[in-house]
Nucleic acid binder design. Structure first.
Lengths: 219, 219
DNA sequence: GTCTATAAGCTGATAGAC
DNA sequence: GTCTATCAGCTTATAGAC
């Protein structure tokens, strides 16, 4: 089950325009935040007149909440089904690679989430304490069981999850800095696999785990 | 030498009000970004009438640039003086702990920087390619020399610097999420040393380095 | 240097024709 | 359902008294 926020104002998709606006709003909110985003700019991105946006969404905040909910619905899915019986090296490697891929392929979603947290999570504080906190603690239990079973060294599972989030989402949130430093204009598949390999290997080694063999297909 | 941006609009401190406004603006810009920040809110934080802010700074953008310049001036100082002759474990450990401390003690600065990058670094793209890129490449050379001297395992130094930045600044930028998940209301010294120990040990181990002994004083 | 008052322009939201 | 026209309020910036 994916972590889901508990809000009352979320609306169900009705037609094509609804989805178009949602996607346009995601881009605009990701770039400028809630306050900085302009309804006119969202309408322009969606290729619709501004009044049309207001027809589908009551106001700016309800549109913002709808976008956040849409993102959260598919956030940390990859790590939900892992249990003690799994091999920690393979589970962590899979999780890290999935998160890196998500950061490269849908950076706007990560950036919008980052923007909300940066501002003190005014619209997600309930979600943090009521949904994400139990999820993290639950996942931390799996790590503890791995440690008790001698499958990995003793370390802090919560801080480890923070490290994985931070390192992988960095490539979405700080894309402008990464590209500027690497002297590139855009991300490519080579960089995805390079980052995936480095991040997985370094973190696994940091946990006293042997990184699983990576085949040449990169997948 | 600290990396410094090359902008023409930066102003020199003139008196107490100048510094007060700069600090107030840092808080406001960190929370709401350039577009979202309100000059009135900055004036309120500074305890001055709004027109007074405009007396010291020509407009919103020049104030924003002045704040950015002020932050950058003291950013990655800790890692400037490291050379091949130093022990990589000690150098990295010192760097990581300094960055963690900075994130906990001056999160607003980190958040403002993050906000600028999140938006595509519109005011810092020159700084990225002309100042920060050479700095990173220069520091990467030190890592390469350590690897050639057999002092640490072969890995990608640039991605390693990204990882250190991401992991340490996470505690400033995502403070609201970290506190929400840990179920705490604010950061304390215990958490600083806990995070410092974990981050340093995990990354150093990930680089095949033996973490230096930490004494009980935590400093 | 400081502050009140106000101008000039922008933004979210809605009314109402089609 | 869609779109043009427009309002009411807010925001930056400045003019001008002190």
């Amino acid at each position: 089950m994916a972590p889901r926020m508990s809000t009352k104002e979320v609306q169900k998709p009705r037609d094509k325009h609804f989805t178009t606006i949602l996607l346009a709003a995601q881009e605009e909110f990701a770039t400028h935040g809630l306050k900085g985003a302009r309804m006119q700019a969202i309408a322009d991105r969606a290729g619709l007149p501004k009044a049309n946006v207001h027809y589908y969404f009551k106001n700016k905040v309800s549109l913002y909440l709808a976008v956040l909910d849409n993102i959260i619905a598919t956030w940390d899915d990859f790590f939900n089904d892992v249990s003690v019986d799994d091999d920690p090296a393979i589970a962590l490697d899979t999780f890290i690679r999935a998160k890196v891929r998500l950061s490269f392929e849908n950076p706007a979603a990560s950036r919008l989430f980052a923007n909300e947290i940066l501002q003190g999570a005014p619209y997600l504080s309930d979600y943090m304490s009521e949904v994400l906190r139990p999820w993290v603690n639950n996942r931390a239990n799996v790590f503890h069981e791995w440690m008790n079973a001698g499958k990995m060294i003793a370390t802090d599972p919560v801080l480890l999850i923070f490290m994985i989030w931070a390192t992988t989402q960095h490539y979405a949130d700080f894309q402008a800095q990464v590209l500027g430093i690497l002297g590139r204009k855009e991300y490519d598949d080579d960089l995805i696999s390079q980052v995936s390999d480095f991040t997985s290997q370094t973190i696994l080694r940091g946990c006293g785990l042997e990184p699983p063999n990576t085949d040449a297909t990169g997948n």
